[in-house]
Structure formats: C-alpha cells, structure tokens
Design a protein around this nucleic acid. Structure first.
Length: 132
DNA sequence: TCCTTGACTCAGA
DNA sequence: CTCTGAGCCAAGG
C-alpha cells in the first residue's frame, strides 16, 4: 500500500467497513472497539493512533457504502451518536427491529449486545492488533 | 494557508 | 449520573 495520507486513510476505511459488515444482526460495536482492532498505519506512532482511531472510525462511517450496517455502530456509552442528517431515531428503530434492547435513558446494554470478533476471524484478515 | 468542525474517548469536577 | 476540556488528525470553507 502506498504511504500517502490519502492511501492510509483509504486502507483504514476499508478495514473499518470489513469489520462492521461482520457484525451479526442484533449486535453492536463502538467506534473505539473497532479502532482498537486495526493496527496503526505504517509510520504512525502507536500512541498517537490510539487517540484518533475512534474518530477515524466515525469519519469512515460518514461515507460508508450502502452494504455496511452502520446502525450497528454506537459510542462507548452505549448510546447512538447524534449527527446532522439522519436522526438518531432511525438508527434506534433499526436496532430495536433487530431485537436490541434500550433502557429508559436511551442506552443499549452493551454487556448483552457487544460483539467481539474471534481471534480466528481477526487473524484471517490480518488484524492481529487485538491488544489494548 | 489559516480556522473551524467533527457519526470519539477518557479523565476530572 | 451529567458536563467540560483536552488530545489528535483530516476535510472543508
């Protein structure tokens, strides 16, 4: 892969989509969890990457392809992130339709719906940075 | 080129 | 539990 800023972003985005596409129905992952599974781009300090990966996942999701189940990605507190355009209502409705439970404060029980890919699944795609 | 925002998180108060 | 500010990078005006 090339090392230009654009090229790295493109590679990162691709990995994000690959992971999100694998989230099973009724399960969710947070931006941070997804970012933690992707290794730092070549030439980038691992510590610096930790600080921005969650946001990068958000960027990637803002332009995700139609076949990516974007509604299965929520923030670390278990709530759907507000954003212009689509109301959080739509995302919540899609999740409830899949059987995801929300409490009275609009939070998802992450303990019950958090999806964690198996080591074998990650290894198969070269995503071995499951640390942190 | 400078400045503002942003589908995030975490530590503090 | 809620609210702020900081940290860090990229994209758009």
């Amino acid at each position: 892969m090339d090392q230009t800023s654009t090229g790295r972003r493109q590679a990162f985005d691709t990995q994000v989509y690959e992971i999100v596409r694998a989230i099973p129905t009724g399960m969710v992952m947070s931006y941070g969890m997804i970012g933690a599974l992707i290794p730092p781009p070549l030439g980038m300090d691992g510590g610096a990457f930790e600080k921005v990966r969650a946001r990068w996942v958000g960027y990637a999701m803002s332009g995700c392809p139609d076949d990516v189940p974007w509604h299965r990605v929520v923030n670390s507190t278990g709530r759907v992130s507000a954003r212009p355009g689509y109301g959080g209502m739509k995302q919540r409705a899609l999740l409830e339709q899949e059987g995801v439970q929300f409490d009275e404060r609009g939070r998802i029980r992450l303990e019950d719906h958090r999806w964690i890919p198996s080591a074998a699944w990650l290894a198969r795609r070269g995503l071995l940075d499951a640390q942190s």
